[in-house]
Design a protein around this nucleic acid. Structure first.
Length: 851
DNA sequence: GACTGAACTATACC
DNA sequence: ACGGGTATAGTTCAGTC
């Protein structure tokens, strides 16, 4: 154990106040009560542990019209509750009566204090008595409950003071077992005006290499570690090489795998990071290390209290280290970042390339037994570079983690793993006190089942476009449409009225447009009195606008991260209401939101047409029209006019002006395809939506040819150049001048291989990979190409011609011509009345330009 | 065995 | 189980003749 600095007792009264920023929250029991343990830093970078406690309670909501005497009886009954469970004695400490709100309804509720948070559920079970309608507030988790109760928020600065625990017996000697600089029992905490950005987190990135991908199956060959002043690869392989080669000064040699793991732990302890960061480390690196440590019967004691990582098995494995925040960057990127990245996969290589402009080291994997002496050097470099990239990514993404943590008021460990609904829900739960609201409970398993059994909702409206080339296009879209609808019409679970209010002349309620719900036409009605949920949505909406403006005015990683945190939050609110697992789920509210979305979009279309513009396209919250001879100012005036007619906080904004745009037909029929168009803005930037160009399951050549054709056509407004270009490409394909690399098709395996009912080409390719001993898991991207028939049969399926990229073979000219290149471009030329097939086959010469 | 619509599958848009 | 519905399009499957 690391020695702790001795604190001079005589100075205690002067030093027992610290500036403190909380990073990680955990809790423990002592003498049957719960104590929170916050690990953080002071302003000098010392590691602090703050111990604190808070009231533990749940709510019992009383029946309406309950009599005072009855309440007294209930209180008396509850006050005597004592439980002896799970080796604990827990009892109700006291009971108070409060005027609260639940789902916007005023209620009388009992605040029932108990000794241990973990027992609240059992206490709630004892409250199944007459007079008590609902029991709430015992399923938040103790850390969340504590943060709400004491308002000691993650990643905000506090001035804290209290009793310093120095080799104290208190709390079972917690400070002795903990590797921190100072441990205090909190007495006072005061929020101070110090920027969260002042805190510089200490990251340590790690990555391990092994022969077998299945957890624990192979040996760990090496582990790399990178922090601000450290680059290291620990290995027990290729000892001689290291001795001979002083280039490899970052390599540290140990005698075997067990020592490798112990060395890793030693380094982590020495560096003592705030965050231990990996890439897919929840699912791979950390559990792998744990499994190998178990195999060698050694302890992976990474925690500040020397505990081993604990794993939670949810949908995916989650690895937690006591006192050090373990972050799996891939998980955070997957959930909160992916939709704003252009990378086609979320591999470390692609993501690092996009975000920090660096790639992985090239290295061709081999089993370690087959690695040549000199190749180890490359392997070490490769391993190190992975940690270098992970470290740089962590620093790059830090502002986003920080802003999510501040927004959600939840610790980084959780925030980095939250799905979209959890971000919304955390924001709601941490702001309920402003509205005196008792939290709703998580839906039960049965409730979720019921919600999932409901018929699917009808979603947004998409305008049927006419295929063609258009000029001078304007795009408007609604600002945070779903969220602003919730606010403008006060839509939520709590504000929903059971039935249409009757006999009122002036409407004092909101009425949804007519909609189809469970196969019936109906409307829903909502209170006028603003509910807490819509009011919180208003806060999200306003902050989203404000932070977006601030970012535009003053771009910085922090202002960008703040803006994008609220962007994500705002964009997820409706999904949250519609989500069956949400505490504040409401299908009535969700369906009403969608009905308003359709109505408002259609109204905008009508008004645009009434104003004399030709509407080209619209999808959900956007509308595109041709401004023809109208100048930009006239368009802006029209926008203002539209806005003046919109209800509540609804607002349309000018998305952009475009020089040209193209809409094409569907592959079958003459109708225009929805969700498929391309635009050229006034700075000559292309914006392509839905076309094969942006689809990763088309080969590179088809995508590239299509995007070039679109570019030429939009820039020139004519097709000649593009047509000649396509003819050249076709010639190249026929002459086998195209490199195989450009013909690789990539398709993701979405589920385990054996679950496929239809055996499609990518399933065949995956089976081939499996045969070669490659790890085939759901989620991986399968690469293959279509080769010439080997059997020569006429009626051969595509899958029979599948070959892996490294398999020798010749590409199938026919396939790439007729199933990749031509389909990608032919309906673009059709806009000019050109039949590409006829032109290519030379059957009929369509006159160019006679459209 | 050829043809055809349905089913299955992946991926995009908002 | 861990945000929703709308939409296009390829390939295979299964039923028909």
């Amino acid at each position: 154990m690391t020695l702790k600095p001795l604190i001079n007792i005589s100075n205690l009264s002067q030093v027992n106040s610290f500036k403190f920023i909380p990073i990680d929250y955990d809790y423990f029991d002592w003498q049957q009560r719960n104590y929170i343990r916050i690990i953080g830093r002071d302003d000098k970078g010392k590691r602090l542990c703050v111990i604190d406690s808070c009231d533990v309670y749940l709510w019992a909501i009383l029946e309406k019209d309950i009599k005072e005497k009855e309440i007294k009886n209930i209180i008396n009954k509850i006050s005597t509750i004592k439980l002896d469970i799970k080796g604990r004695q827990t009892k109700v400490d006291k009971v108070e009566i409060h005027n609260k709100k639940f789902l916007d309804e005023p209620v009388k509720a009992l605040k029932i204090f108990a000794t241990n948070y973990k027992d609240l559920h059992d206490i709630a079970d004892k409250l199944d008595m007459k007079g008590i309608e609902k029991r709430r507030g015992y399923d938040l988790g103790f850390e969340t409950h504590y943060i709400i109760e004491k308002q000691i928020l993650p990643l905000q600065w506090y001035e804290v003071s209290g009793e310093i625990l120095n080799n104290s017996e208190k709390f079972g000697g917690i400070d002795i077992a903990l590797d921190v600089d100072i441990c205090i029992k909190l007495e006072k905490a005061r929020k101070i005006e110090k920027n969260s950005a002042d805190f510089k987190p200490k990251f340590l990135a790690y990555d391990l290499e092994c022969d077998e991908f299945q957890i624990g199956k192979g040996e760990i060959l090496m582990i790399s570690l990178v922090s601000e002043n450290l680059k290291k690869v620990i290995t027990w392989k290729a000892k001689n090489l290291i001795k001979d080669n002083n280039l490899l000064e970052y390599v540290e040699y140990v005698k075997d795998e067990a020592e490798l793991i112990e060395k890793f732990v030693e380094h982590v302890k020495k560096i003592s990071p705030d965050f231990l960061v990996g890439y897919f480390s929840d699912g791979f690196d950390l559990p792998y290390m744990k499994a190998r440590a178990e195999k060698h019967k050694i302890k992976l004691s990474l925690g500040l209290d020397n505990s081993q990582p604990r794993f939670h098995r949810g949908n995916i494995l989650t690895g937690r280290i006591s006192g050090i925040v373990h972050i799996d960057l891939l998980r955070f990127i997957q959930i909160a970042y992916a939709q704003y990245l252009s990378s086609e996969t979320l591999s470390l290589n692609e993501v690092a390339n996009e975000l920090i402009g660096e790639r992985k080291t090239e290295f061709k994997f081999k089993h370690s037994s087959k690695i040549e002496h000199s190749e180890w050097l490359k392997y070490f470099e490769y391993n190190l570079q992975d940690s270098v990239l992970t470290f740089k990514l962590a620093e790059k993404i830090w502002p986003d983690l920080l802003e999510f943590s501040i927004t959600d008021e939840e610790p980084i460990f959780d925030v980095s793993r939250f799905g979209l609904s959890k971000h919304v829900e955390s924001f709601i739960l941490h702001n309920l006190d402003k509205y005196n609201e008792i939290p709703e409970k998580r839906p039960t398993y049965e409730e979720i089942g019921k919600r999932k059994n409901q018929l699917p909702s009808v979603g947004a409206f998409v305008f049927q476009p006419s295929p063609g080339l258009y000029e001078d296009i304007v795009f408007f879209d609604f600002t945070s449409m779903h969220t602003s609808i919730i606010v403008s019409f006060n839509l939520s679970k709590g504000t929903l009225l059971e039935k249409k209010p009757s006999g009122k002349k002036d409407k004092d309620y909101y009425e949804s447009p007519e909609l189809e719900f469970q196969s019936k036409k109906t409307r829903f009605y909502f209170k006028k009195q603003p509910g807490f949920f819509p009011q919180l949505c208003k806060e999200i909406f306003e902050k989203r606008k404000k932070f977006k403006a601030e970012y535009k005015q003053n771009p910085s990683p922090i202002s960008k991260a703040r803006s994008s945190a609220f962007k994500v939050l705002s964009a997820s609110v409706h999904g949250y209401v519609a989500f069956f697992g949400a505490r504040y789920h409401s299908s009535e509210a969700s369906n009403s939101i969608l009905a308003f979305v359709r109505q408002l979009n259609k109204q905008a279309i009508e008004k645009t047409e009434q104003a004399g513009y030709k509407v080209i396209y619209a999808d959900t919250d956007s509308i595109a029209f041709s401004r023809a001879k109208a100048n930009k100012q006239e368009v802006k005036d029209f926008l203002n006019n539209l806005n003046s007619q919109l209800p509540g906080i609804m607002e349309l904004e000018l998305e952009d002006f475009y020089k040209r745009g193209i809409w094409v037909t569907k592959r079958s029929g003459d109708l225009g395809a929805k969700k498929k168009y391309a635009l050229l803005d006034e700075k000559d930037n292309l914006k392509i939506r839905g076309f094969e160009t942006v689809r990763r399951d088309w080969c590179g050549l088809a995508r590239e040819v299509q995007s070039k054709v679109i570019k030429m056509i939009l820039e020139e407004g004519k097709n000649e150049k593009a047509l000649n270009f396509v003819k050249e490409i076709i010639k190249k394909i026929k002459n086998r001048q195209v490199s195989l690399q450009d013909l690789i098709i990539k398709t993701q395996l979405k589920k385990p291989l054996e679950e496929y009912k239809a055996i499609s080409p990518h399933v065949i390719a995956a089976r081939k990979m499996l045969k070669q001993g490659m790890p085939i898991d759901a989620g991986i991207l399968i690469s293959y190409y279509i080769s010439e028939s080997s059997t020569g049969k006429k009626k051969e399926l595509v899958r029979d011609k599948v070959k892996l990229p490294e398999e020798k073979g010749q590409y199938d000219i026919e396939y790439y011509l007729n199933r990749q290149i031509l389909p990608a471009v032919e309906n673009i030329f059709q806009v000019f009345n050109l039949d590409l097939k006829e032109i290519i086959d030379g059957k009929k010469q369509t006159k160019l330009g006679d459209f």
